[in-house]
Design a binder for these strands. Structure first.
Lengths: 339, 339
DNA sequence: ATCCGCAGCTGTATCGATAAAGATGCCGCT
DNA sequence: AGCGGCATCTTTATCGATACAGCTGCGGAT
C-alpha cells in the first residue's frame, strides 16, 4: 500500500501506467477507443494506487455534474420519502445522482452569489411542490432544466408530471357512493376562485362525481382545513363532529390529512367505517397500517418518478424542446376505512 | 440586462469593478481586508451582472466543499425524515449543506474510482446506521471525518452519537410495570450472543427493569421479528396472539415495529390499551396520530443532530482528535397505548 | 531622514480532469 | 507503391476560483 499520503491524481495513474491522462480518463469513464491490454493495465494501476476521481475537477471542465436536484418543501413527511426513494432509483438507472434540497430551509447569511450558486451544481431540477410553499419560487428560473412533480401548476413553460387530481378524486367520491354513502363531505384546503391548483382540482373531481351521480353538492359539506397536515385534519374532524352535521362519507385531500381525520374521529368516538367512511389520496406507506387501514387513491409513484427523470434528461439533451404535461395513472385501493 | 449569454465569472466581475479577481473573491466570501468603498462597488457589480460563484472551481482549488453527507439506509422511513430535518437545520446553522446519500441503493456499473469518489465530495460524513445494512461498511474508512449517528456500534475509532438504548428501554419497561403490567413481552430483532448493537442493548434495558423490579424474565416473552419493519411487527402481533401466550404489556424495539403491532392487534380484535399495553421507541411523528396514540421513548432528536454536526465540525478542524461517544437524553412520552 | 509594519490590493501559478485537435501506426484496397 | 480510413493514443488549451507571494502607499517609530 503506497500513496497513503496526498491524493493520487489522474496524472499519477497515467505516469505509472505509461499512458496519457486522456487515456486514463477514457478508461475510468468507460469510453470506447481503448484497447484491452491498455485498459487492463490502467485499471490495475487504478486499483493498486487507490486512485479516486476528483469530481470537482471533472465538473469544472465538463460543465456537467451528473447530479439532479430534488427540491421538496420538507423532508419530514411520508409523502416525501415515498417520492424520493423512487426518484433516486430511477435516476440511478440513468446514471444520475440525486441531491435533496429542502426549499423550506432558508440559508441565512449567505451572499446571493453563493446561495444562488447551489442550484448550478445540478444538471437539472425536479421540483416537488406538493406543499404550498411560496419559497419554491426562489428556485424557479435560473435557466436550468426543470420539471414540476406533483401538484403545483406554474407557468406552462415547464415540464409537468401531474397527479390525477380530478380523475382520482372523482373516482374516490364514486367509490364512497358505491359503498352507499349519501352525505359525502370533502376536507380540503381553502378553495379560492381563480387558482388552479391541487385543492381546486380535487374539489372539482369531487363535484363532478356528485353531479354525475345526480347528488346535490351542499356547501355545508365542504370543511376547509386550517393546515394541510395531519394535525389540521384532526381539528377538521373535531369541527365536523362537533357541529353535528350529518355525514356518512369523507373525502380527504391527502392521506396525511386523512390520518389526522382518523385520529380526530377516534378522539370523538366516531367509528370508521361504521359511522363514517373515509378515503384519502396518495397511498403513503402508512395507509395500510392505520387503524382502520385507509382506502385511498393510489397514483403510480414509480411511474411519476420515471417520467420526471425522463423529462429532465430530455430537456438536458435539448433545452429548446417544448414543455409537456403528463398525468399519472392511478388505482383506487379499497381498505377497511370504506368497508 | 446584459450577460444573458454565457456565464459571468469572477474575472468578469473583477474587470467590471476594476479590481483583481482575488479582491472579488474576498468580497464574495466575506473575508476581511477589503475597504468599504471597494466592497460596495464589487457587490454592486455582482448584483448587476447576475454573477454566481462556481462551486466546482472553488472546491477544486480549496479542497473544501462545504457539504456534509448524511448517509441513511433508506430515505423512505419516518425515522429518516425526523432525523434529516434536524440535521439539515443544524448544519445550516454552521454553514454546511447536507447531501443525502442512500446507502441501500447500490450504484451499479460504476467504476470503483467513481463510486468511491462520491464520498470525497463531502467534507464529512454522518452515518446513520439504524438499519443493519452491511452496505454501510462501504462508506467506512476512506479517511474522511465521520460520525456515527444512532444505533450501530463500529470500531471505537469513530465519534458516536448514541441513542439511550438501554436506559430508554429500561424506563419504557418500568413505565409498563407502573401501569400495572405483569406479563411484559418484548418484540425485537434476533438477539445474538456477542453482538453489541441496538437490539441487544435494548433487550438488556428490558431485562434490567424486570430484574430491578423483582420480576422474572421469561423466554416465552421474547418475540423475535422476521423483519424490523411495520410489516414484521404486524406478523409478530399475530404470532403473539395466536400462540395464546398470556401478555398484558409489550415493549416494541422501534415505533415502526410498534405501528405494525398496533395494526396486528387490531387484526385480531385485541384492544390496546384495554387488553394489552404497548410502548415504542423513537417518537416518530406518527406516534401521536396512531389509533390509539403510541406511548414511546422520545430521544432528543434535535440534540442528537446538533451533537453530530458539532462532532464532524470538530474533526474537520482537527482530524487527530480522540473519538468520543455521547448518549442522547430522552423522555418517556405517555399516550393512549399505555393509558 | 530612514526604516518598519501593515492594511489593501494585484499577478500568477495551480487545483485535476476533459474537449478537441493532432500524431501514430496498421490495414486493405487500387 | 501509394493512399485513404480507422482505431488508438497523445498534446494542448482551457474550465473558474483560490493560495500565496509580492507590490504599494502611508503612518509612526527610531
Amino acid at each position: 500500500m503506497t500513496a497513503a499520503q496526498g491524493t493520487v491524481t489522474m496524472g499519477d495513474v497515467a505516469r505509472l501506467a505509461g499512458v496519457s491522462k486522456m487515456t486514463v480518463s477514457n478508461v475510468v469513464n468507460n469510453r470506447p477507443g481503448v484497447s484491452e491490454p491498455v485498459r487492463r493495465r490502467v485499471l490495475e494501476v487504478v486499483r493498486e494506487s487507490g486512485y479516486r476521481l476528483n469530481v470537482s475537477a471533472r465538473t469544472l471542465r465538463s460543465g456537467r455534474t451528473g447530479v439532479l436536484g430534488l427540491a421538496v418543501p420538507h423532508v419530514n413527511s411520508s409523502y416525501f420519502g415515498l417520492l424520493a426513494e423512487h426518484v433516486i432509483e430511477e435516476a440511478a438507472r440513468r446514471g444520475f445522482h440525486i441531491a435533496i434540497e429542502q426549499t423550506g430551509a432558508a440559508a441565512e447569511g449567505e451572499f446571493e452569489a453563493i446561495a444562488q450558486s447551489h442550484k448550478l451544481q445540478f444538471d437539472g431540477l425536479i421540483l416537488s411542490a406538493s406543499g404550498l410553499d411560496p419559497q419554491d419560487q426562489r428556485l424557479v428560473g435560473g435557466g436550468i432544466p426543470m420539471v414540476m412533480l406533483g401538484e403545483r401548476d406554474f407557468a406552462a413553460s415547464f415540464d409537468h408530471v401531474a397527479m390525477p387530481n380530478e380523475e382520482g378524486t372523482k373516482a374516490a367520491t364514486e367509490h364512497l357512493i358505491d359503498r352507499g354513502c349519501r352525505r359525502i363531505a370533502i376536507v380540503t384546503g381553502a378553495v379560492r376562485g381563480e387558482d388552479v391548483n391541487v385543492v381546486t382540482r380535487r374539489h372539482h373531481g369531487y363535484l363532478a362525481a356528485l353531479l354525475e351521480r345526480g347528488m346535490a353538492a351542499d356547501a355545508a359539506l365542504l370543511e376547509p382545513l386550517d393546515a394541510m397536515t395531519a394535525e389540521g385534519g384532526r381539528r377538521a374532524a373535531h369541527r365536523l363532529v362537533d357541529s353535528g352535521r350529518e355525514v356518512d362519507g369523507v373525502v380527504a385531500v391527502t392521506d396525511g390529512v386523512a390520518q389526522g381525520l382518523l385520529r380526530g374521529f377516534a378522539d370523538r368516538g366516531v367509528r370508521v367505517p361504521e359511522d363514517v367512511r373515509l378515503i384519502g389520496f396518495d397511498d403513503i406507506p402508512e395507509a395500510a397500517l392505520m387503524v382502520p387501514s385507509l382506502s385511498t387513491v393510489s397514483p403510480d409513484h414509480r411511474w411519476m418518478a420515471a417520467k420526471a427523470i425522463e423529462l429532465v434528461a430530455a430537456r438536458i439533451d435539448d433545452p429548446e424542446r417544448a414543455a409537456t404535461e403528463h398525468t399519472a395513472p392511478f388505482t383506487i385501493v379499497a381498505r377497511e376505512s370504506t368497508r
